[in-house]
Design a binder for these strands. Sequence first.
DNA 1: ATTAGTGGTTACCATTAGGTTACTTGTATT
DNA 2: AATACAAGTAACCTAATGGTAACCACTAAT
Lengths: 120, 120
Amino acid sequence: MVTTNFNSRFIDNPLNCPVTRTMSIIGGKWKPIILNCIGERAIRFGKLNQIIPAISNKVLANELKELENFGLVKRTEFLELPPRVEYELTTSGKSLMPILHELANWGNKNVAKKIIKELS
Amino acid sequence: MVTTNFNSRFIDNPLNCPVTRTMSIIGGKWKPIILNCIGERAIRFGKLNQIIPAISNKVLANELKELENFGLVKRTEFLELPPRVEYELTTSGKSLMPILHELANWGNKNVAKKIIKELS
DNA sequence: ATTAGTGGTTACCATTAGGTTACTTGTATT
DNA sequence: AATACAAGTAACCTAATGGTAACCACTAAT
């Protein structure tokens, strides 16, 4: 059983909040996008970089490493030349996707227009 | 209808992703905690600051202002002395809470132990 | 000999989020 | 006369996040 203060009356440290903890993993600027781009298939590093051209390879490599560390993504290296590496979602990563889609729907209904307005 | 590239094949700007947009609102270090502490009741600024002692009043005021801006929180000012201000969740804010709880549960099952381990 | 393809790494820089401390306003209390 | 209360503001500082550009290893093709 893991500590949770999300329903407690006294928060002395944000990391006692399970939502904040979860955010610390998926809250990066590119993480939800990367997870969604991987989707149901295995995909190569270079292909991801094509689909998300605005992300630099440094940042992409970092994000993938973190996602791998937390067990959301599985990295498979093939010993070929030129090198080939494939990324795919783990069971844990896949189980997150429905929640991300709920967030997306909620955002589209509730705040999307305001954000877009604020940026123009 | 709002633009969404969350399911598209080409991401040129993270703000075209509705999940990223939603994160930009609730992804702050303290926002989910604040929303949860407000809960179903109206609560005063000072009371929030007591419940979350680790947040400074400057940051708390900022976060509340943003949440108000995006329509998740309603601020009511009473013209009394000393001043009294009450915050409560709007319908939109309340509708987000079930999703945050799903995130919390997902995190507890999937990543909490790893995060806690990494910090010790 | 040079270039291309792949999956990165390294060094460096800019922006932002968040934190600290002190201060304000107006009345009431000691 | 000084202090407390409530709800913030203002000025300043630091650490983390993310961005840029160059480079690497290895082989095959031109």
